[in-house]
């Protein structure tokens, strides 16, 4: 294959992601040496009975960061190609806001996050919210051709749902409000036991559906008319994009809170680094890059002793990337 450099990039980012995962297992307020960590992962015991739980906790966080970062980056990439806008993403377009509204309705409505009803309710509400916004966006995108206007519409959705959430605050109890606000800061923490693995498997399964989007995405760079002439079933592709991006965004938002910047920034860098235009390579590289970035952010959060919220870290890393992309695009004359 021609693109040896891209294969190298894929392997490189995969290795980086795993290294960061290992690093996240090793770092922490409690010093546990690497040999003991390997022991514990294999099911052994350590001198302090809490360490197995600590490693399990760190592992769960890492799995969630890996999956969540990958899912958001993947959604962002797909949305950018679909809406032909390099600034599109699950956050900017208001999709994660829709999911947040769903979450707010459940939490502020008084159903606790840890109860089973709460869990199912949260996922459903999050998905309904995310898909709702996405469908509205699609309808509107048919009516307006300017992609900048679409971004503004997405931002307006974001503001609108935030306002609705503020209204919900009026009726909520103080502890529910606090629970929601803490959730809103974003965190990869919170899953226990084997839940991290389930999360990973769930995200991977949905992400694998993107294999059906390889050809459509490859063709959509020329626009919908050309894509259609190349044999792409636009209706089916549109539906698949809504489902995949909507569910991935919803699931990550429900469990991690609204995490910003990964969805926009990662696809930017990847489009710059990867030479191949075949989404067969672009999609997995984007996923892994998102995983790596999320793990890096989680490590930073934990090293700061949880003083820095997750969204602050992702913004610190992501915002400069976006600005740099805009400047670079301006230079090459490419259209925003």
């Amino acid at each position: 294959m021609k693109n040896n450099r891209d294969i190298f990039t894929l392997v490189g980012i995969l290795v980086a992601a795993f290294c960061l995962l290992g690093l996240n297992l090793y770092l922490g307020e409690v010093r546990i040496n690497f040999g003991t960590i390997v022991d514990l992962l294999g099911g052994g015991t350590a001198e302090n009975a809490s360490w197995s739980y600590t490693i399990e906790n760190r592992l769960n966080r890492s799995l969630v960061a890996f999956s969540g970062g990958g899912a958001l980056a993947l959604s962002g990439l797909i949305l950018q190609v679909f809406f032909r806008n390099p600034l599109a993403g699950p956050g900017v377009l208001g999709i994660s806001s829709g999911a947040s509204l769903g979450v707010a309705t459940v939490i502020l409505g008084g159903v606790g996050m840890s109860s089973l009803l709460g869990n199912l309710g949260l996922i459903s509400a999050g998905i309904i919210g995310a898909l709702g916004v996405l469908i509205l966006l699609l309808i509107i995108s048919r009516l307006i051709s300017s992609s900048i206007t679409l971004l503004v519409v997405g931002l307006m959705f974001g503001y609108f749902t935030s306002s609705l959430i503020n209204v919900l605050f009026q009726w909520a109890s103080e502890s529910d409000t606090r629970e929601y606000v803490i959730w809103g800061l974003g965190s990869f923490e919170g899953l226990n036991g084997k839940e991290g693995w389930f999360f990973l498997v769930g995200v991977l399964m949905i992400s694998l559906l993107t294999v059906f989007l390889i050809k459509p995405l490859n063709a959509l760079v020329l626009g919908t008319s050309y894509a259609g002439s190349l044999g792409v079933n636009l209706k089916r592709s549109r539906l698949l994009i809504i489902i995949i991006c909507g569910i991935l965004t919803a699931v990550v938002t429900v469990y991690c809170g609204p995490v910003s910047f990964i969805g926009i920034a990662v696809p930017q860098i990847i489009r710059f680094i990867v030479r191949s235009k075949n989404h067969l390579l672009i999609l997995p590289i984007t996923f892994l890059a998102g995983s790596a970035l999320a793990l890096l952010a989680d490590i930073t959060v934990r090293l700061s002793g949880n003083a820095l919220p997750l969204n602050t870290v992702t913004a610190l890393i992501g915002a400069p990337i976006i600005v740099w992309t805009i400047i670079r695009m301006n230079k090459t004359g490419a259209k925003v």
């Binding site: 050809k215 490859n218 020329l222 190349l230 044999g231 235009k277 989404h279």
Partner: peptide, 15 residues
Amino acid sequence: VILLGRLPHQGILSR
């Protein structure tokens, strides 16, 4: 861009 013309003849992995 020219390669995109081969898309209809490619499999699902678009190689």
